[in-house]
Amino acid sequence: MIAKRWMSGVVGSVVVAGVLAGCSTPPAPRAAPGPTYEPQVRPTPNRNSPAPKPTQDDKCPEGGVRLVETGGDAAMGLRVEGFQLVNCGTEPYVLEGYPEVSLRDSRNDPLEVTVEHGAEGITTGVPNIEAAPARVTLAPGQAASWSVVWRNLVTDATVTATTVPVLEIAPRPGAPRLWLRLARPFDLGNTGKLGIGPWTAAAR
């Protein structure tokens, strides 16, 4: 009788142990290794490298001449700006007197500005503005110069100051007109006046 109870206890213990073993939580599987991350290394820009130069349209305009802004000077409200007309064609180009000038706003609409020959009423002592008109013949590749002068004055706060961003000229009567968006717009204040000089042979 005692033996049966002992066997019964052993069997029960084995069964309980088996059940407990079956109910135990297995260890979590190890995660599979993910892809290796390699950061992309961008090349450091060379600050000493020259900046790319803007492209220029080398096509010669209709009429065989090109208008070029050459720069100027400003002092005590007085402005002088220079230009050249370059013969980019294949034939001689004859100029005489003054260019026919029209001033435009940013929408290319005409501005009400008085354009006069010479510097009278604006200043004195500007030889390239006050020079006498002369005949100038440009061989292919040669250039003629001309200049403009004005004062940047605001004498009436009720009148809007005028800025001229676009210049239009006819180099000679009947010639195709040339347009140029100015790198240095004319800041006329509210004087409403601009003086121009005649064509002169550009220094070689």
Rank of each mutant, 00 (worst) to 15 (best):
I169D: 01
R104G: 00
V16S: 03
L103Y: 04
P39W: 07
G195K: 00
T44E: 14
A3F: 12
W179M: 07
A144D: 12
P140W: 05
A175P: 05
G121K: 05
V94Q: 13
P165V: 04
L111S: 04
P52M: 02
I2G: 15
G197M: 03
R184M: 11
N87V: 04
L180Y: 12
W150E: 01
A161G: 11
P27N: 10
G18Q: 07
T158L: 07
V101Y: 02
L188I: 05
G197R: 04
G71P: 01
G22N: 04
E112D: 11
E81S: 06
E91A: 15
Q40H: 15
L85F: 14
N128A: 10
D105I: 02
I2L: 14
V15I: 07
E96I: 10
G22R: 08
G82M: 05
T36L: 12
I169Y: 01
K53L: 10
R172I: 03
W146C: 07
L103T: 00
N48S: 15
L153F: 02
E168R: 02
T36M: 13
E69P: 04
A28T: 12
G18M: 14
E81D: 10
A132C: 01
A175V: 08
T162V: 13
R204T: 10
G141D: 08
Q142S: 12
A202K: 13
G71Y: 09
A131I: 07
V14I: 15
K4L: 15
V65Q: 04
W150M: 08
P165G: 08
T124W: 14
S24W: 12
V148M: 12
A3P: 04
R104E: 00
I2E: 13
G82N: 13
V41A: 10
I122L: 05
E100L: 04
R184H: 14
G63N: 06
S24D: 06
V154R: 05
D73A: 08
P39S: 08
A201S: 14
D58G: 09
G82L: 09
A139G: 12
E38V: 15
T123A: 14
P29R: 00
I2H: 09
P29A: 06
V10W: 13
S106A: 13
G89L: 07
P173Q: 13
I169N: 04
Y93I: 04
R42T: 14
R172D: 03
A139Q: 15
T200K: 13
D109W: 00
A32E: 15
